[in-house]
Structure formats: C-alpha cells, structure tokens
C-alpha cells in the first residue's frame, strides 16, 4: 500500500505540468468562447436598438432571451471537452510508452522496484482516474465563473439565467460526465475505469509480445468489450427485451466487475512474468 501511494504521488508529479498546461488551454478557450459569444449577442442587440431604433420588446421578439445553453452547445465548449477527452486518451498511452520509447528507459527502474509490479499498474490507473476527475471538478468551478461572466456581459433584460446545475443538464454528453445520481456516477466512471484498464492490459500485451502482442491485445480488447456490454446485446438480440432495466443494470455491473478484474489480473500476470525491456 505504501509503495502504491508513493508511486501514485510520483505519477501525479509527472502529470502536473501536462495537466496544468491542458487546464490552461481548455479553460482559456472556454472563457474566450463565453466572452466572444456573449459580446456577439450584446453587439447585435445594440446594433438593432441604436442603429435601427428597435425597442427592447421588439429586439426580444427577434432574438428571444439568450441563455447560457447557447455557450454550452457552442464549439468553444464542445471543442474543449473534445480536447480534454483526447488528451486523457493520449495520456493513457503516454503514461506507459514514455518509459520505454526513445532515450527514456525509466521502465528499467519501475520494473526493478522492490514492490509488487501490480502497484505500478494501479498507480497509473489511479492517475488517469484522478486526472479525469480533476477536469470534471474544475469544469464545475469554471462553469460558475463563466455563468458570472455571461451575466456581467449580457444585460439582465436580454438573458435567462441558469444555475450551474441547470447548465450541466444542457446536453447528453454533459449528462454522461455529470450524472444525476451517485449510482449513475459509479456506473459511468466504473465503466470508464474498466475501459482504461482494458487499454492498459492491451499495452502490456504489446510490451510483452511486441507485434504479436498487438494482435493478441486487439483480440483481448474485443472480447472484453463484448463481455462488458453482453447483458445489453443478449437482452436486445436474443431475449427480446426480457429483463427489467434494474436487472440489466445489475448484470452490467457484474460484467463490469468481471472485465475490470480480469484486466487487472492479466496486467499483473504480464508485468510479473512476460514483460520485457
């Protein structure tokens, strides 16, 4: 446990700079987007009222009130969520390969630590989870600030205010990141962690068997995904929607636990017995 925590601390320190830059980029773009869209709207209403002499009511009839939803569904917002998601995906591979490839041969040291090698795997997995949760948490804080910014720029008469909680409910994608209930949160993030563990084990297949490992890893990945979502396929395709939603969710959780457990077990086996420098 102590070694795991030390490794997690070490991985977090390595992540810090990357994460800091990413947060600056993502949040910089979001804030810029909030300002650009809000100013664009106010400049249009100013144009109508000052140049064309329309009244407040007439302008509202043309545009309606602006809500923060228009910002949430804009490219500035989705673009940054896409950047963040892609970066996490990139880091899932980087967290392993940076220690093997090129001049960096830190993999030697990681594999020569006097601790069970599964701690290396678990520390990297936890780092990805913490990285994701950091983004998700900071996004909530930033939303609060962005809503405030929006309210400063757009006059009260021309806007409809949203709370942070309402802003998070403006798209399906946001709903995935910010589920309604704690149970949904566990399911969504549990599935995410399982998929990351499957990718980690795929990487370890590749690192253990090189080219042959890519094919084994792809086979393993496909099998894992089939098992993970099997309750839904079976229910839809074979049983003609026989199960209740609660039963399906329960089966999905069990499949999730099986896939996550087998990914960690296989990862441990490969690190202990098959990995090579």
């Amino acid at each position: 446990m102590k070694s795991y925590l030390k490794l997690l601390n070490f991985e977090m320190n390595r992540l810090a700079k990357f994460l800091f830059i990413l947060i600056l980029v993502v949040f910089g773009i979001q804030i810029a987007g909030t300002v650009v869209i809000s100013l664009g709207f106010t400049s249009e209403i100013n144009d109508l009222m000052i140049r064309q002499g329309l009244t407040e009511e007439e302008v509202l009839n043309v545009f309606g009130k602006m809500t923060f939803q228009q910002i949430v569904i804009s490219v500035f917002f989705f673009g940054t969520i896409f950047i963040a998601a892609t970066s996490v995906l990139f880091y899932i591979f980087l967290i392993w390969y940076r220690d093997w490839v090129g001049k960096n041969t830190f993999a030697y040291r990681l594999l020569m630590l006097p601790t069970n090698r599964i701690n290396v795997y678990l520390a990297k997995l936890s780092t990805i989870l913490i990285m994701t949760l950091t983004f998700v948490a900071l996004q909530i804080i930033l939303l609060k600030f962005e809503i405030q910014l929006f309210e400063w720029i757009v006059p009260e008469a021309f806007r409809e205010d949203l709370t942070v909680s309402q802003a998070l409910r403006q798209s399906i994608e946001m709903g995935l990141l910010y589920p309604y209930t704690f149970f949904e949160f566990l399911i969504n993030y549990g599935t995410g962690i399982t998929l990351v563990a499957v990718i980690f084990t795929f990487i370890l297949f590749e690192r253990s068997y090189r080219v042959k490992g890519i094919f084994i890893g792809i086979g393993y990945g496909v099998l894992s995904i089939l098992v993970l979502f099997s309750p839904f396929y079976i229910n839809d395709l074979l049983l003609n929607n026989y199960f209740y939603t609660d039963e399906l969710i329960l089966m999905f959780i069990m499949a999730d636990i099986i896939v996550l457990g087998s990914a960690i077990f296989l990862g441990h086996y490969l690190l202990k017995n098959k990995i090579r420098i």
Binding site: L111, M112, K272, N273, I275, R276, I277
Partner: peptide
C-alpha cells in the same frame, strides 16, 4: 542479466 532481474521472460 535481464533474466536474473525478470526484465525478460
């Protein structure tokens, strides 16, 4: 040497 330290199977 790699085999002694289990860096190669």
């Amino acid at each position: 040497l790699n085999a002694i330290t289990r860096l190669t199977p």
